[in-house]
């Protein structure tokens, strides 16, 4: 089964200026009979958009609901389908915007989706943040943050033609674990010069999830880490980190790797 540890923590800049945490994350396990999937959605609301914390929460919730209804098979998900799901999220945000009496731009957020089985993964995103995957041959990026030309610009799902910028990555092979994060963590977790995942960041994370008895007990410690001085001295943005590891069910013969 999939073990998932999600954490979103407000950044010090928002704490100081009274803005709520604009990051959101959600996951669900989906057993389609054929395979056990883990679906994860992450969103990061635009800083100056007044209701982007509502946008990010609605976007992640609705995206998972839409994907679950589609009952996807990991190997058969297409880019067109992913685009369609994103479109449905946009439609939902438009109706929330109407309800709130506000332009949809006030709900702007990035949006990331993972659909993962033990034999493969599909990663989708609009905007920055990213997905990293642990496969048999090591830990590497799934998607890469899309920042637009300048450091303080990214694409939000509400940006014009955002759907044309959709990143869609499919990986085939044994998936041992994966992680998703918003841009608050990307400069700590990725090496931009080499375009690689920073293994010393992710390895201990995956090890901790794998070694735990009950992974829900890791949520508070992970939040604590994201709020710790070592992290906040490097980034004052809201931070989200979702960790996931596959564990073979008990009683199924498997290789013991020391």
């Amino acid at each position: 089964m999939w073990r998932c540890v999600p954490a979103s923590v407000i950044g010090s800049s928002h704490e100081q200026n009274g803005t709520p945490c604009q990051d959101a994350c959600e996951y669900l396990r989906l057993n389609t009979g054929d395979e056990e999937l883990l679906l994860v959605a992450i969103a990061d609301g635009a800083g100056s958009a007044k209701l982007s914390h509502v946008g990010s929460t609605e976007a992640t919730r609705h995206l998972l609901s839409v994907v679950r209804q589609a009952q996807p098979k990991c190997k058969e998900v297409t880019q067109a389908q992913a685009r369609q799901w994103m479109q449905e999220v946009l439609t939902q945000l438009a109706s929330v915007a109407e309800r709130e009496g506000t332009p949809i731009s006030q709900l702007a957020c990035t949006l990331l989706l993972a659909i993962v089985s033990k034999d493969g993964a599909v990663f989708v995103q609009i905007g920055d943040g990213g997905w990293v995957v642990q496969m048999e041959d090591g830990i590497r990026p799934g998607t890469w943050p899309q920042n637009g030309e300048f450091a303080n610009i990214t694409t939000f799902i509400t940006t014009e033609a955002a759907l044309d910028t959709l990143q869609f990555v499919r990986l085939d092979g044994k998936v041992e674990g994966f992680a998703g994060f918003t841009d608050g963590l990307q400069t700590l977790a990725l090496n931009f010069g080499t375009r690689q995942a920073h293994v010393p960041f992710f390895q201990p994370m995956f090890d901790a999830v794998r070694a735990s008895g009950d992974e829900t007990e890791l949520i508070a410690p992970l939040q604590g880490f994201l709020a710790s001085g070592s992290v906040t001295s490097r980034t004052d943005d809201d931070k989200t980190l979702v960790l996931a590891c596959w564990r073979e069910p008990e009683g199924v013969p498997h290789e013991v790797v020391q």
Binding site: N191, F225, S228
Partner: peptide
């Protein structure tokens, strides 16, 4: 002891924007 000890987790060293 926290399972996520900042002292044991490596941070990437990226140049400032």
């Amino acid at each position: 002891q926290t399972p996520f000890d900042p002292a044991k987790i490596g941070f990437a060293d990226n140049p400032e924007p």
